[in-house]
Design a protein around this nucleic acid. Structure first.
Lengths: 138, 138
DNA sequence: ACCATTACAGACCCATAATATCTTCAATAG
DNA sequence: CTATTGAAGATATTATGGGTCTGTAATGGT
């Protein structure tokens, strides 16, 4: 049970966008190059981030991806849920007459993790990064 | 990203063992019947629980599975890790020169969930269950 | 008006893991 | 000795993840 690698890509791509925060959009090609992954696959993740409303896409020449205005409010949870979905970690498959106690316990624990991931913003990491070489961001 | 159904089976099986806590071992057949799942598949989960040291098996006629002496100290985390393994939820696949900041954040959040799951014992649920019909335990 | 660039959508492929069954073997109570 | 029961391994089936390829639509530059 692990988060998919796609989430890894998405988080790092978002960190790049937040850290570099250029006005002009960043193309998939450039992002894929910086991260060292394939363009086509990364583009799927970015499309998911667009649909989740975290970033904004510009088609056509000189197009690419930009952050939305909420900039500093994008949390880890936002990105993770955009890729992994929002279904809960554990779902009881048995037929109970009342709610499953086991599920309640696990769901409660998951809630705590989600709370942490929600309070932690991508932008929080930027401060810790020396503003020079791009390689450190990948 | 979800816990496997196998974890669901294992947790419910453990709850049954803890709640009914009989001195004589419980056979896979009975457990599978109570849970409404196949014997053969459930038996694999039970074997994992044995290897994790949570329960004890008795071969031969009138055999089955018993709890180990630690009875009340079996946590949700114990069971989940016995089935899912102990690899961490998130592992950065990129090449950083120093530790990945993203990974640190997610790992920290995961730790909080694990802490909750570790403090919560299977036996904690038993008190809430009326001591009569077995069906409520499934 | 045309063309190069770019995001987007869908079909498709492959490897791995999850779910589940069957068969065989080993242990053991009676 | 025999019926019962857990352990282990082989196999089959499906789902999911990871990834490519192709075509389409949008758009800026010339």
């Amino acid at each position: 049970m692990k988060y998919s690698q796609a989430t890894d890509y998405a988080l790092h791509a978002m960190l790049y966008l937040v850290a570099e925060a250029p006005n002009k959009p960043v193309s998939v090609q450039l992002l894929a190059e910086k991260l060292g992954v394939s363009q086509t696959y990364l583009s799927k993740m970015l499309t998911k981030l667009v649909k989740a409303g975290l970033i904004h896409s510009v088609s056509g020449a000189n197009g690419g991806y930009k952050l939305k205005r909420n900039q500093d409010d994008i949390s880890f949870l936002d990105v993770i849920q955009a890729i992994e979905g929002t279904t809960s970690l554990f779902e009881c498959s048995f037929h109970h007459d009342s709610a499953c106690l086991i599920q309640q316990v696990v769901a409660d624990a998951e809630q705590q993790m989600m709370h942490t991931l929600k309070s932690k913003k991508i932008a929080d990491l930027v401060a810790h990064i020396p503003k020079q070489p791009h390689e450190r961001l990948t």
